[in-house]
Design a binder for these strands. Sequence first.
DNA 1: AGCGCTAGAGGCTTTCTGCC
DNA 2: GGCAGAAAGCCTCTAGCGCT
Length: 496
Amino acid sequence: MGYDREWLNLWDDPKDDPALYDFYHVRYENWDKVWRKERKPIKDEALTKWYGFEGNDKIKHIYRSAQRSAVMNGQVVEEGYGDLYFDIDKHRDWVTWDTVQGKGLLLVDWLKERLYLEDHEIVPISSGGGFRLMVPAEVMGIRPMVGLNNFYRYIADLATAERDFTVSNDYKGWEINLLDKRIYGDGWVLRLEYTRNNNYNDRRFINPLTMEEFRNSSINEIKKLCREPRLEFVNKLSHFTRSSQAFMAYDQLLYDYLSDQGQLRKAKEKQAELVKESKIRVCLHKVYNEGEKVGARNNTNFVLAVELRRVGMTYDDVLKRLLEWNSRCEEPQDENAVKNTVRSAFKKVYYLTCTSDWVEPLCTCKSSMESCPTYWGKKTKAMGIELVNENKPYYNSIMLFQLGWGKVLSGSEIKVYFAIAEWERKRGRKPGELFVVNHRQLAEEAGVGHGTVGTVLHNLADKKLIKYKPGVGRGASKTASEISRVIPIPKPMRYA
DNA sequence: AGCGCTAGAGGCTTTCTGCC
DNA sequence: GGCAGAAAGCCTCTAGCGCT
């Protein structure tokens, strides 16, 4: 690995060293030789073609600032060099700008805390959608090294382990990490003052923002800023100086990374512990924290042991925690008694629900399904799912015909209607509850063609049997259809 | 970042089938 | 032959992904 502590000190400014200066700016020729596939030479013509630079006097400072690594036969074979980038995605309109901006500021805080950076050393760059945070190579004294991308990914992983960049949407049922790590591939990134975005007919610039602008601007204001080139940044982007504190912090991280004593591993372990603890039921967690004052200690001991095992802790973990817990009790038990209890808790798998004789005496929320987020009982309503009684028909096909729909609906309409009801049941939905499905899925369920489903859904909606919002397959956002049955099933209207 | 390609969304058009 | 319902295939379009 290209890691040599003595070597680090010789680099104050890359421009002082001709060899590094060469590396830093344009080393296209050699680069092309080691390129894995036959790629287009990244020459000025390509830049001209892509970015339309030709004849533009305003653009003079083009840096190839992230020449990260070269890969041959799956092996990283050449040193890479580049700015440290973070990519925060907006993910279409799923996530609001406020959220994206908030996560970005979270990352800014983390960078300031971890790498001792100042606001002006972190450059937000946006084209009006998501944005990137760029820490210039000069600031941290980044050295060319083999596998630099992997190290950058490590830094992003560390940030992810220590801060939460996920956003969830319960309705859609997904959770995504806004901090995109795909950018740490084998690619390269240009540091540009501005460029043209070919996706838009108008000129749209990828502009650096000041941290103040980034903090205080709405998405519309940022889009406005992106309309025009901001030449005042040209000099700024060419002249960053090294920060000694950031240099040392970067050095420390690199040492951790290379010596495999990563802070990442520790952070992940700590996070895993927190996750386990968060699964402990609220009332039992309270008992565990506060210790036992009076009452059946042995019972409590056993319940806690089973609970800690349930959330995924090992025998040693549980024993250690319970011994510690026991010592906090007003009248501690003998250590051997605790060991015996833990051993019996691990003899077989116990299911101690909130309403069981063991847990109920300890339960302070009195097994209230509505109020307790960690309620665990036979009914799963507290988890947002109401069990469907399999014995009771959730839709009554006979009723559909008794109401007279049999004479009104075509064969495929009846098939599709029943498929909707079946879909409800399979997903654990209540009759009439809204769900999302695409035509082809429904067609498979109904045993009809997908084209038919499109027609039939409109018909059923016209007849007020369902509510139907067609999905958008060829619009700005791709979504499936939203369907809900009208319950109770209405009577058919008379058709002239 | 841009470029190029693909998957997959619903709609549209054509073809097939059965009935009168 | 005329008609209607259904199926199949094609069309159009964009987000997402991999590559550069």
